[in-house]
Design a protein around this nucleic acid. Structure first.
Lengths: 222, 222
DNA sequence: ACCGCCGCAATGCAGGGGCAATGTTGGTCC
DNA sequence: GGACCAACATTGCCCCTGCATTGCGGCGGT
């Protein structure tokens, strides 16, 4: 995962880069709005962490432009101004999440993960893999235009797999998606769900490939 | 996207603004026809959501003026639980779509998107599933041309189910559609309505399929 | 005053999913 | 290259939760 960090406080930036690096997140760091916009055009980032107070303006002003450049790009706003009002403004302007300084790095990590998982693109978005079409809003699966009715757990798993189609989804992320945060499962039930999903999807030209020790990968069959 | 909301019920307006904000839609909110007309002159809005019952008159009277100010501006009319007569009037006066209260926020969002997507063009006015024909504006059901009289709750449920025919409607959405925002039901009454609806629709080749843990799905019987 | 809608609750029913047993694959170490 | 182990696959079982159905009673409308 590669993230764009827009932050002019060098100490904080350095700490964040180090912390994110420990979680295998590559960070591109810029210090101004202008540089951020330029960097965003590369289109390689999975999310943006955006400070508000910057040398050349308020980070919020960048949000619409970022959205133009890359529809649905997750944006997390950082701010020293932590009053609730500001929080609302931040979200209304189109950020996906808002974090007041000072914050725990772990919290930021959690938000990044959450925001990545979220259905970011709001305008009718659906993903097609093989003969499977999955509507991200409705969480509805179709095969050849026929709705495919799935039980809840299988649907939750498929939802995440489809969002990351072609990329590896690690096991714990799937567990979290299927069971929620609190629920605690102590067996191979997830495997069972995957197995049943697989049986339904393989005929539609969709493969769920297991990556041993890591997770699963959904892709179209050759 | 920026929308003009003309609504004098402050609670509803507040809820709508918050909901739309979550989808990156900026809302300008006014409470009277006069203020609405003034706001429309700014020309920055992509659509107008217009309540009918307003302190200074019927929202419908504003439609011609809005059309003068900005040709082709999409207009969605809201109205208190509508008698069929009102629905017709709403569309005849030139609104692009018409939504009876209580409605789902999701439904409104869908209409906004739909209305934005296509240039001014009349709405699809009826949906046919199996031998059931449902008029979306009149909220009237027909089987083989014979009008099917339904009680209010069943009609509200069917209305939503038909709009999402072939797609899953989740339970809470149905509850909201049938009971409105405030009404709080603490029993399986919805199930009862569905059951009765089902009895009336199955003979007409329409199935209401339960998706356990999620909701219902209306479709034509094979 | 009657009729029909609707909220409610009791009862019956079955699909879903957690679990575990067993089979299979792939990776590693000698 | 073979043997061992750990991770994944598959399947059957069984309980429980959530849905279906129906009758009852109250209330509102005509």
């Amino acid at each position: 995962m590669r993230i764009l960090l827009v932050e002019d406080e060098l100490d904080l930036a350095k700490a964040l880069i180090a912390a994110l690096a420990r979680h295998d997140i590559v960070v591109d760091h810029v210090t101004t709005l202008a540089l951020a916009e330029e960097a965003a055009h590369s289109g390689v980032h999975s999310a943006v962490i955006l400070d508000r107070k910057l040398p050349d303006g308020d980070g919020l002003s960048l949000i619409p432009r970022l959205r133009e450049i890359q529809e649905g790009l997750p944006i997390i706003v950082l701010s020293a101004l932590g009053s609730p009002d500001h929080r609302v403004t931040g979200l209304e302007t189109g950020a996906d999440d808002y974090l007041a300084k000072p914050f725990l790095v772990d919290e930021l990590l959690a938000r990044i993960r959450a925001v990545m998982r979220r259905p970011v693109q709001m305008m009718e978005s659906s993903v097609t893999v093989g003969r499977l079409k999955f509507d991200l809003h409705e969480s509805a699966a179709m095969i050849d235009g026929e709705p495919l009715v799935l039980p809840r757990r299988e649907l939750l798993a498929l939802d995440l797999l489809v969002r990351r189609a072609g990329r590896v989804v690690n096991r714990s992320a799937l567990e979290e998606a299927v069971y929620g945060f609190d629920d605690d499962i102590a067996s191979n039930t997830l495997d069972a769900h995957i197995s049943r999903l697989r049986r339904k999807l393989t005929p539609a030209g969709v493969e769920i490939h297991a990556i041993r020790g890591i997770g699963y990968l959904l892709r179209a069959l050759p």
